[in-house]
Design a protein around this nucleic acid. Structure first.
Length: 781
RNA sequence: GGGUCUGUAGUCUAACGGUUAGGACAUCGCUCUCACACAGCGGAGAACAGGGUUCAAUUCCCUGCAGACCCACCA
């Protein structure tokens, strides 16, 4: 009979991915059905559009999230795989300001928010486009936006409910203040950088006679100095305790006291305590009941308290005051030191500590509870647990949630103009106090005029309720009960202390139970040299040209096989190219097998039984790995089976038999056909979550009778039967590989081509494969 | 300063208390061999250092070193 392959092209052309996408479009293979007995609900990260290009790491991140969804579908669950876009907050505003060359505070609010929406739409389109072409199987039709009326009203609803429960406090407390973003930020948004700074040694006069030298990195805060401390054991400075120091420039008198906080071996041994240089100042002010001097205004400029320096920025005030003091001989010396400086995570500006009246969400009362969740939740990988616990343990103050920004969810409050009482509207609607009419007629005091709250929420107030959003909290009770708590949270390790922690806190406060039972945490994609990618370093890689050049399946396969669960991995185009050779292999294996008919059943030979056993082991290992969200292991196991065992050895062994050459019966030939197809079909299924395009294409060409997709299948089941244990199977495989390699080497040494005959013998313990082996190597007696 | 994790060839990694330490990419040879030159075959190339436990350690323990990350009030 004539054998014609159904697959003719020599390589997998990734342009075909578009055709496969087309086929998926409009089909409901990924549809979630909450009525199914097994459901798997994923709380997925809504990506944050902070500029162009989108990060290659994000493309890898979402590819892997998709693998989790696809694997669970094929393990038999109906999967809720939502997708949203996070569209609130400072990074968006900053991007709009930069792109359009405008300043938020000098632009009318209405106009500014419209600008933000416009730039967001562009960034969002790019992200969604990449996610689609990656082959993500999420619910694109119902994607959500955190700046939608629906989402913002949910954020406001939870706030109003928490307000009623007494969880919201308004208080004036020293806070992290970013002078660039012009707003308070939470501790979770502060990161530390080692920055060089000047430690200035200044001569303070002592009223009782003499002078004391004070070292400080913050001379611009001299006006706010309220006390000088020295260590009680400090030989040199002890004599000043109880005396009065005179602050240079300002001539103000402050006490010199003994305090263990002052380290005698740092600087001059004497420190000035100002409101507020850092958080140790905050603590000392509280401890000594000092009166704070507000040095900064909301624009980050020095206040009238700074005297001649009022109106200057922190940095220029520092330069000027140092110069002035040097002119007056007050500066003894200057040292450059490297200082672990708290900076704003987004703008990288050193944060200032400024007392401001803000809203806080109580979190200190929940620390124990959060710790317990962190201890009992399942983490993939386990090592991610510590990231959360470390953060929970360091939570020290309530969460400041109000921001002086525009593009975010508005705090839904109006104040009575006459008595200043705060009025909150009914939950359920979206309120914009700065532009809406107050939904109240009259205050209890009789007042009828209301002043809107102008501030907004921290964006984490919005994104921390994605589990509620996707579970239709407050909208569809039946659905909510079915899917909440969700099965799993998937996210990157960089947002453990924000998104992971805040989601636990918020969802627990609202519902009384944690939002999920497990969390999958992915590492960073770093550059070729192992450095973190960042826009400032200029080593970010744009995913679009990469995907266009190599295709999504190649990219996905690279991403799956490159690094283990939770590890960081390096992006290298060369490795991407290399690892994707496997797809060519898979394609050609399919091409070869596609030329043979597919018998319904067959009586297997010993060689067939051997590869079926190897296949069974592969199926069992892969399914186990997929259950643990470990496609690194699944993909590598498959690559090894398909390439190094099935293609290199089994296929070579049965080639003659399958072609009907030599001394084989018709039944034996059919057995080879049958086994080849079975191995290919099942390997495709096992690989489908990782490389959804090529597997669906080949499956569709060879095995799909009614045009159904491979993605509506479940994984094959397998049990180990032919051999009674892993030992003997592995042993047989090793011997076969060894023998084949030996013959190839002998032919090579003899200068023979591989299809020339050679005198050789099959070893006795491989005799049951003898017929195939003799045909394969054209062995002569 | 405290803590967590990790150290296997240029890179990513596997198994293992006794192995010639396995594979993939890159590199170097040789082959246009009938699914695949995006292939096949072959070569070269590795356990961070020191100590301990053990008949035996790359594997277990300790110390040091290096890296990654987390936390912390040295002005």
């Amino acid at each position: 009979m004539e054998l014609t392959p159904k697959i003719t092209e020599k390589t997998w052309d990734h342009k075909l991915e578009e055709k496969v996408l087309e086929k998926w479009r409009g089909s409901d293979i990924y549809k979630f059905d909450e009525g199914r007995p097994d459901i798997f609900v994923m709380d997925t990260p809504p990506p944050y559009p902070s500029g162009r290009p989108w990060h290659i790491g994000a493309a890898a991140h979402y590819s892997q999230i998709d693998m989790i969804a696809r694997a669970h579908r094929m393990l038999g669950s109906s999967v809720l795989f939502p997708i949203g876009i996070d569209r609130n907050g400072i990074a968006v505003e900053a991007y709009a300001e930069k792109k359009l060359g405008i300043s938020m505070h000098n632009t009318p609010r209405q106009q500014f928010t419209e600008h933000c929406r416009t730039v967001l739409d562009e960034l969002e389109a790019e992200m969604l486009g990449i996610m689609r072409s990656l082959g993500m199987s999420c619910d694109f039709d119902n994607y959500y936006r955190t700046d939608s009326v629906e989402h913002r009203s949910l954020t406001q609803k939870t706030f109003i409910e928490l307000w009623k429960n007494g969880m919201i406090i308004e208080d004036t407390r020293p806070n992290n203040y970013c002078t660039k973003c012009c707003t308070i930020i939470a501790d979770a948004e502060v990161v530390y950088e080692d920055l060089p700074t000047q430690l200035v040694y200044m001569r303070f006069g002592v009223k009782e006679g003499g002078e004391i030298v004070i070292a400080s990195t913050r001379p611009e805060l001299l006006a706010a100095c309220q006390v000088v401390i020295v260590n009680p054991d400090d030989e040199a400075n002890r004599k000043f305790v109880g005396k009065t120091a005179v602050v240079p420039i300002y001539g103000k008198e402050v006490k010199i006291v003994a305090h263990p906080q002052a380290k005698s071996d740092f600087g001059s041994g004497a420190a000035m305590i100002c409101s507020y240089g850092d958080f140790s100042d905050v603590r000392l002010f509280r401890e000594m009941k000092l009166k704070e001097v507000v040095m900064l205004d909301v624009r980050g400029k020095l206040t009238q308290s700074a005297g001649d320096y009022a109106g200057l920025s922190v940095f220029s005030a520092r330069e000027k005051i140092i110069a002035d003091m040097e002119a007056q001989g007050i500066v003894l010396k200057k040292e450059t030191i490297v200082h672990r400086t708290p900076v704003c995570e987004r703008s990288k500006t050193p944060i200032e500590i400024v007392p401001m009246k803000e809203f806080y969400l109580k979190q200190m009362d929940f620390v124990d509870k959060m710790r317990r969740f962190g201890e009992t939740m399942k983490f993939y990988p386990e090592s991610a647990r510590q990231l959360l616990l470390d953060w929970v343990d360091s939570v020290a103050i309530d969460w400041p949630i109000s921001r002086r920004r525009f593009y975010a969810t508005e705090i839904p409050i109006w104040y009575c103009k006459s008595c200043n009482k705060a009025h909150l509207p009914e939950p359920g609607k979206y309120y914009q106090p700065w532009k809406d009419r107050a939904p109240f007629e009259k205050c209890g005091c009789g007042g009828t005029e209301f002043v809107p709250e102008e501030r907004t929420f921290d964006t984490w107030m919005d994104s921390s309720i994605t589990p509620l959003m996707i579970s239709r909290y407050g909208k569809d009770d039946k659905f909510f009960k079915r899917v909440y708590p969700n099965s799993i949270r998937v996210q990157g390790k960089d947002i453990v202390r924000t998104w992971l922690y805040y989601s636990m806190l918020r969802c627990y406060q609202v519902t009384g139970s944690p939002p999920w039972g497990s969390a999958w945490v992915m590492g960073y994609v770093v550059d070729e040299k192992g450095k973190k990618m960042s826009k400032s370093k200029g080593n970010v890689v744009d995913p679009m040209p990469i995907l266009e050049a190599h295709g999504s399946d190649n990219f996905r396969f690279w991403s799956a096989t490159e690094a283990g669960l939770g590890s960081d991995y390096r992006f290298s185009e060369q490795k991407l190219q290399g690892s994707s050779k496997f797809l060519t292999k898979l394609w050609n294996v399919s091409r070869f097998i596609s030329s043979f008919p597919q018998p319904e059943r067959a009586a297997l030979t010993e060689t067939d039984k051997w590869i079926v056993e190897e296949l069974a082991r592969t199926i069992i290992d892969c399914k186990k790995a997929y259950r643990e969200h470990n496609f690194f292991q699944a993909a590598n196991t498959l690559r090894d089976f398909v390439w190094n065992v099935f293609a290199n050895h089994y296929m070579e062994m049965v080639k003659a038999r399958a072609y009907g050459e030599g001394d084989f019966t018709e039944e034996e030939k059919r057995a080879a056909w049958y086994t080849l197809h079975m191995c290919l079909k099942m390997s495709l299924q096992l690989l489908a979550p990782v490389t959804p395009f090529i597997t669906d294409f080949v499956y569709g060409s060879l095995y799909s009778k009614k045009g159904e997709s491979i993605h509506s299948m479940t994984f094959p089941s397998a049990k180990l039967t032919t051999y009674d244990g892993q030992e003997s199977r592995a042993e047989v495989t090793r011997k076969i590989l060894e023998f084949n390699s030996k013959v190839w080497n002998e032919k090579k040494a003899a200068g023979l081509s591989l299809n020339e005959g050679m005198k050789s013998e099959v070893p006795p313990d491989l005799e049951k494969f003898g017929k195939d082996l003799r045909a394969m190597h054209k062995m002569k007696d």
